[in-house]
């Protein structure tokens, strides 16, 4: 650095140029980190976004699940299930979610609204009334993760196939 020399020995006021340069370097690394974080968030690596959105199919192809790979604790995310409905004689179809996934998430809303919800051997079953048996039906679960970390789930149709999925939930 071009230090102009004052006429007498200058006071240094406690400055330390070597430390200052290290601080500036750390500052610039911090700026890059912030830019990286924002970019990662835009891409969906920290929550919803193009790289987070994914889908899975059941082995027989009857169920198509659209979900987010990455979620954030308490933030609402949608889990969309498209399937060929298997209606019972009572013109109802039943979608189940594994109990462990249901316990790890709040489900404040389900669309369409289920007629009722029942427990069945560690699974939670949502019973929907089939006004007409369509070729394809969509059910959306809006979920809010309760805990951070890896969250595995399974979702399927009673009397039909199922699909397993896994998410990472940020704190």
């Amino acid at each position: 650095m071009d230090d102009p020399r004052p006429t007498e020995q200058p006071p240094d006021f406690g400055q330390d140029l070597a430390f200052q340069r290290r601080e500036w370097r750390a500052e610039r690394i911090g700026w890059l980190t912030i830019a990286g974080l924002v970019l990662a968030a835009m891409l969906g690596l920290l929550g919803d976004g193009p790289l987070s959105s994914t889908s899975a199919d059941s082995p027989d192809g009857s169920i198509h699940l659209i979900y987010q790979r990455f979620g954030r604790i308490t933030a609402t995310q949608a889990i969309r299930l498209r399937f060929r409905p298997v209606a019972d004689e009572d013109r109802r179809y039943r979608v189940w979610i594994s109990g462990a996934y249901r316990d790890a998430n709040r489900v404040p809303e389900v669309s369409p609204t289920p007629e009722h919800v029942e427990d069945d051997r560690g699974r939670v079953v949502y019973v929907f009334r089939a006004l007409q048996i369509e070729r394809s039906t969509e059910v959306t679960f809006y979920v809010q993760p309760r805990a951070a970390g890896i969250c595995s789930g399974q979702i399927g149709l009673v009397g039909g196939d199922s699909v397993a999925f896994r998410q990472f939930i940020y704190p």
Binding site: M1, P4, R5, P10, D16
Partner: peptide, 25 residues
């Protein structure tokens, strides 16, 4: 303390600015 709050930095001495320091800061 320097890690918490940093250190003072002389940016002008004897009427002459240290432009490189000022740019960085």
């Amino acid at each position: 303390g320097r890690y918490f709050d940093g250190l003072p930095l002389v940016i002008v001495a004897d009427g002459r600015p240290f432009f490189d320091r000022m740019t960085m800061a």
